[in-house]
Amino acid sequence: MATTETRGAIRIEDVVKIYDPDGAAVMAVDHCSLDIAAGEICMIVGPSGCGKTTLLNAIAGFHEITSGRITLDGEVLCSTDRPKSRPGSDRVVVFQNGALFPWKTNLDNVAFGPIMQGKLSKAEAREKALSMMADAGLNGVEHNYPGEVSSGVRRRIEIVRALMNDPKVLLLDEPYRALDSLTKSVMHEALLEIYYRNKVTIFFITHDLEEAIFLGHKVAIMTSRPCKPKKVLTVDIPHPRDYGVLTSKRFRELIEETNEAVHEEAVKAFQSGEKEG
């Protein structure tokens, strides 16, 4: 797949998002700035309800921002003047709870994007989908419906469905939250394998610090709501990585270095939750 190094650089500048500004005025994101280089895996870690999904939705174009600016490869996606970007196949989202269409077979789900965009005919799209699924080790389930395969497989299919569109950025919202740890480790390796082949920029939200450090080039630890980076960590473990990394000394050190920051925010989030609820 042809990718150049200038594809998929995201710049988040001073983004503010206030839900319901005339009423309850919930500030979800507060003057948040973050730079993600083209082809980088950027992991977003933060406590529950801090505003991670809100930030992702702003990049994806699902809702407006209150102020600030987000650019993709220098082009403005949204800004104070034009607060909502148009969702598009250059930034495909893999959803927190999964969004494969249950009424389409796995194959038709994967083939969906290019057919909608009129880029490929139905037959061509299916052929490409078949080969992409085979490459990702997903053969055998093409003609099943999503409801018939395990949740781990569904997540992988959803990622392949996103990659079918040759996106600049993959936006993943806690894709592996519901999986057991064994399946999770299989998924991580599968994701990295896909990444090494496609080299898209990945914006990956998670709760799990180990997951973040294992996968990411960069880990942004977010504050409790309103959300902005509290600490941005560069993970200096070289890619390609495999499971050996988990037991390496450097990995442990990085975990220790960041654990405190994460824990602190989690406690804050918990306490403010207690106040509200």
Partner: peptide
């Protein structure tokens, strides 16, 4: 999410 996914996919 289904609606959003469909828009995302063009």
């Amino acid at each position: 999410s289904y609606v959003r996914a469909a828009y995302c996919l063009g």
